[in-house]
Structures are given as structure tokens and as C-alpha cells.
């Protein structure tokens, strides 16, 4: 008996399938292009930047764009705005990745344990999460930075920590749905340990909502760090951080508009890129939103 009759032709792998849908989704592709551009700029900033971002030319301060050989002009201390923006991209990317990694790491573990074990464990964890969510998010971040002391590193940690609840909830919700599948019971029947079931079996099937959340989260983190720096709780001068650049030049908005406008546009573009990609990914990966 030949049992292999009618084995369907090799279909595309799920990853390829998603890539195909992503290519069809114009907004997501726009987001992806923006992100890739920012990443490249961030990685190659020493090569791309025409000048040292910290080098001051007081005599050329507040040069307008396209004057004195500065493409985007200079700031109030005569530093090249373009170079500062380019280095700022690197900082923003690092902030985004690190704070999201912190929230992801703890959020996944907490959400997974909460959903997998359920019962009293779940109840306790979820009440703690509710308590964290009861604080206005930005207030919570400020409190954490205030305790740790204002610095870029601490801002990243604070943003990471205060975002944990939303990751934990996303993970918990998708694990709750996923663990009802028979394959979990099947692997338990084979003798698989809890840890293997949680992180080897269930987690890979929850990656879709998690990656949507993480993508959107990078945008949020960039925005939040800009906000913290603006308030003086994040990056400290002379770091070329976008939020800080806006803060320290806000009084020149009428006299030298470019100093405050270009960092604003850069922040907007970066956040937009991640939000577009995140929304696109949600359309592609979340079957409930698909037709």
C-alpha cells in the first residue's frame, strides 16, 4: 500500500507566507522602510555624520539650514544639527531595543507563569499587575527614574519596568488561548516538563501578538525617553538625544525654528515607522482581524 499518494506539494513555510502578506501591506512596508533607514543611520552614524556631534563652533551658532556648509544648520552652541540627529538615531534605537527587551523578558515570564499555572498564582500576579496599571504610566516612569536618579540608562530601565504589565497581559491572554490546544496535552502525555511546555511549545505559538506588541513598544519607548529627557530625567547634556535637543532649544522656536523642528520630525518619523509596522503586523498575524 503506497501511503504517500497525494501528499500535497510543499507549501511555503509560515514565515515566507507572512513575508508575502507583509509585502502586500503598503503601510507596513512604509513602516519597515523607515525603520530600516533609521537602523542603518544608527549603525553607521560615525561614517554618515559629517562632523563630530559635540564639536562646538560658537561663532557659527544658529546657522540656518544650507548656510555655512551646514545642511540642517547648527544649534545654539554651533554644533552640527545633522550630525547630532544622526547620532541621536543610534541612541533612540538603543533605547527602544533595550527598554523593550526588559519589558519583554519580564513580561513574557510573568504572563506565561500566570496563564500556565492559573488559579491562585494567576490571581495574585494579575492583581499586582492591576495595581501597577492603576498608576498613570508616565507618572510611574518618573517615580522610578526619580528613585534611580536621572540618566539615560535609568530612563531605559524605568521605561522597561513600567511597560511590563502590558506585555504580561498580552502574553497571558495568548497563552490562555493557546494552552487549551490538544498539542499541549499531547506533549504532557509524552512526559514533557512544565518548562519545556511553557517555553518550548506554547511560547513559539504566541509570538505573533508578542511581536506586534514589541514593535509598537519600540515606538512608545522612543517617545517616552524623549519625554523623560525633555523633562530632564533622561539623557543629560551634551548627549545628542532627540528629546533633550528639543528641550534645550525650545526657547528658540521663534528665532531659530530648525533647532527644535528637526529633532521633532526625527522623533515623529521613527515612532511613525514602528507604529505603521506594528499595525501592519497585527493585520497580518492576527487572524481575528483578517477576513
Amino acid at each position: 500500500m503506497n501511503e504517500n499518494i497525494g501528499v500535497p506539494e510543499l507549501e511555503e513555510s509560515p514565515l515566507k507566507e507572512h513575508w508575502h502578506s507583509l509585502r502586500q501591506n503598503k503601510t507596513a512596508m512604509a513602516g519597515l522602510i523607515i525603520i530600516v533607514l533609521f537602523l542603518l543611520v544608527g549603525i553607521f552614524s560615525p561614517v554618515l555624520a559629517p562632523m563630530d556631534p559635540l564639536e562646538q563652533h560658537i561663532e557659527l551658532r544658529k546657522s540656518a539650514p544650507f548656510t555655512n556648509g551646514y545642511i540642517l544648520g547648527t544649534d545654539d552652541l554651533g554644533r552640527d544639527l545633522l550630525s547630532r540627529l544622526i547620532y541621536g538615531a543610534r541612541i533612540s534605537m538603543i533605547i527602544g531595543v533595550i527598554s523593550v527587551s526588559i519589558s519583554l523578558f519580564f513580561g513574557v515570564i510573568i504572563g506565561m507563569i500566570s496563564a500556565y499555572y492559573g488559579g491562585i498564582v494567576d490571581k495574585i500576579i494579575m492583581r499586582l499587575i492591576d495595581m501597577m496599571l492603576a498608576f498613570p504610566y508616565i507618572l510611574l516612569t518618573i517615580v522610578i527614574v526619580a528613585v534611580l536618579g536621572p540618566s539615560l540608562t535609568n530612563a531605559m530601565i524605568a521605561i522597561g519596568i513600567s511597560q511590563i504589565p502590558s506585555y504580561a497581559r498580552v502574553v497571558r491572554a495568548s497563552v490562555l488561548a493557546e494552552k487549551e490546544n490538544d498539542y499541549v496535552l499531547a506533549e504532557r502525555a509524552l512526559g514533557a516538563s512544565d518548562r519545556e511546555l511553557m517555553f518550548g511549545s506554547i511560547l513559539p505559538n504566541c509570538l505573533a501578538p508578542i511581536s506586534v506588541q514589541a514593535t509598537l513598544g519600540v515606538g512608545t519607548a522612543i517617545l517616552d525617553s524623549a519625554a523623560l529627557s525633555f523633562l530632564g530625567l533622561g539623557a543629560q547634556p551634551p548627549t545628542p538625544e532627540w528629546g533633550l535637543m528639543i528641550a534645550s532649544s525650545k526657547e528658540f522656536i521663534t528665532s531659530a525654528w530648525w533647532i527644535v523642528t528637526f529633532p521633532g520630525i526625527a522623533t515623529l518619523l521613527a515612532v511613525l515607522g514602528f507604529n505603521l509596522l506594528g499595525d501592519g503586523l497585527r493585520d497580518i498575524l492576527d487572524p481575528r482581524l483578517r477576513d
Binding site: M1, N2, E3, I5, G6, V7, P8, E9
Partner: peptide, 10 residues
């Protein structure tokens, strides 16, 4: 009956 229902694509 041996085998499987064929793939309608092929």
C-alpha cells in the same frame, strides 16, 4: 482505500 484524497490543485 489506499492513499489520500488528492490535492485539488494538482
Amino acid at each position: 482505500i489506499p492513499g489520500n484524497v488528492p490535492d485539488l490543485l494538482s
